[in-house]
Simulated assay, not measured.
Amino acid sequence: MTLDGLITSKFQTVYGRQTFKCPYYLTVSASTPPTLFVSDYTADTVLQLSLDGKALQEYSDNKLKYPKSVVAVGPGQLLVCGNGSHNMVLLTERDGKMVEILGHKDGLSKPYSVSFCSDTRTIVVGMYTIDSLKVIFSINLISG
Rank of each mutant, 00 (worst) to 15 (best):
L91P: 08
Y112H: 10
I130V: 15
K134E: 03
V14G: 05
G103Q: 05
V71S: 06
K21V: 14
F137I: 02
V80P: 09
S115Q: 13
A43V: 06
T27K: 07
Q77L: 15
D4R: 12
V46T: 08
F20E: 00
V124N: 01
Q18S: 09
V73W: 05
V89I: 07
K54F: 09
S9P: 02
K54T: 15
D131N: 14
P111V: 07
S31R: 10
T32N: 15
C22A: 09
V38N: 00
Q77I: 11
N87K: 03
G96S: 08
Y66E: 13
K10C: 01
V99F: 02
D44M: 01
E58R: 15
E100V: 15
H86N: 15
Q12N: 12
L108I: 08
S118H: 14
P23W: 01
C117G: 05
L108A: 12
H86T: 08
K65I: 09
S138A: 11
I139V: 15
F137G: 04
V124G: 05
F11Q: 02
T35A: 12
S9F: 06
R94P: 02
I123H: 09
V73Y: 06
L51Y: 01
Y24T: 06
P34F: 04
G76F: 11
V14H: 13
N83W: 15
V89K: 05
K110T: 09
L102S: 07
S132Y: 07
I130R: 13
D131C: 11
L133M: 13
L133K: 08
V135C: 09
N62A: 10
N87M: 01
G53M: 00
I101C: 15
V28L: 14
F37C: 07
D61P: 01
F11C: 02
T8D: 12
K110C: 05
M88G: 07
L64A: 09
L64M: 12
L79S: 05
T122N: 10
Y66M: 14
L6R: 10
M98K: 03
H86Q: 11
S118V: 12
D119K: 12
L3W: 08
T122K: 13
A72I: 01
C22T: 12
G126T: 01
F37M: 14
Y59F: 14
N62L: 09
D52H: 11
F37E: 05
K97I: 10
V99W: 07
Q18A: 06
V28G: 05
V114L: 00
V71C: 04
I142W: 03
Y66W: 13
L36G: 07
C22S: 11
G5N: 05
Y41T: 04
K105T: 10
D44H: 15
L26D: 03
Y59V: 02
G126D: 01
E93W: 09
S109E: 04
P75D: 12
L64W: 04
G103W: 08
V125F: 01
V135Y: 04
A43N: 13
A30W: 14
L51P: 05
Y24D: 04
D95P: 06
V125M: 02
D40H: 00
V46P: 03
K97G: 08
V114K: 00
V70H: 00
K21C: 05
D119N: 08
D106S: 03
N62V: 09
A30D: 14
F20S: 00
V28A: 07
T45Q: 02
D52S: 13
